[in-house]
Amino acid sequence: MKTAQNTAQAESQTATNGATMTPAETASPQVTEMHPIKMTARKVDVFYGTKQALFGVDLEIRDNAVTALIGPSGCGKSTFLRCLNRMNDVIDNCRVEGEIRLGDTNIYGANIDPVLLRARVGMVFQKPNPFPKSIYENIAYGPRIHGMAERRAEMDEIVETSLRKAALWDEVKDRLQEPGTGLSGGQQQRLCIARAIAVNPEVILMDEPCSALDPIATARVEELIDELRENYTIVIVTHSMQQAARVSQRTAFFHLGNLVEEDETDQIFTNPRDKRTQDYITGRFG
C-alpha cells in the first residue's frame, strides 16, 4: 500500500519534471486564462420552495482545469454544483432559473434530456456510494445502461481502462467480482470516480469527495484529480482551503448564495479582491 503510493507519487513528480511542487503551482495563471470555456452559468437563481438559495450566479468553468468552489456551510456551493448536471431535478420543489451552457447548448433548454446530460457531466459524491454490487458491475453500470459495449470483451476493456484511470486497477484486478462495498473508504471513492469515468463524461463534478476520507486516502484522491485534469474538466466543492489550494487552478468563493469572487487560485489565496474572501481564507469566519 505504502510503496504503491510512493511509486504513484514518484510518477506524478516525474510528470511535473521531477520538481517537488504542489499541483496548484504546476499550472501558471496565464495557462488557465487561455483554456477554452467549457461551461458558462448566467444569472442562475435557485429556489427551494419559496426560499432562494442562489442569487444570480455568473461563472465560467474552463476546460482541462480544476475549479474549486469554496465558502462557508450553506453558502450554495453544493447547490450550484448540482445545477451543472441537473441533479437538482430529482429534488421536489427545487426550481432553477437562468442559463447554464455546456459548450454551446443550454442544459436547461427544452430539448435537453437530463438523463443524457448526466452522462456527459458525471458526479462524485461526498460519501463514497458504490452500489451493493461487485466491483466490475459498479463500473459496468453506466456503460451498460448507455449501451456502450456490445460484447463482453469490450466491457472488460472499459472496466479495466476506467479502473486504471482511477489508479485503482492494481489494487482490485484480482477481485473484480467481490462487492464494491468491501473496499476501504478511499478505494470506494476511487471506485466511484472510476464509475463516473466509465461513461466518458466531459465534466466531472465532485461534491466534497474527500470529506469522509483519512489524510492518506485524501492525498491519493487529490493526486488522482490532478491526473484527471488532463482529459476532463473538473469542478470540486471543498470545505478545506488547503485542498482548494492544492488541487485547483481556479477558485470561486460563495457566500450566502452569492458568488463573491472567482479567479485564478493563486490570486484568490494571495491577493483576494473582496474583503469577505479575505476574511474567509484567513479563517475569520466559516
Binding site: R118, G122, F125, P132, Y141, G142, I145, H146
Partner: peptide, 25 residues
Amino acid sequence: RAMRDGSYAMGATKAETIIRVLLPA
C-alpha cells in the same frame, strides 16, 4: 438516498435506477 443519487448521476433514468439499483439493494 446516496444510491439513488449515484445512479441518477450516471445518467440512469428512474426506471433503470429502480430495476438495477433499488430492487437489488
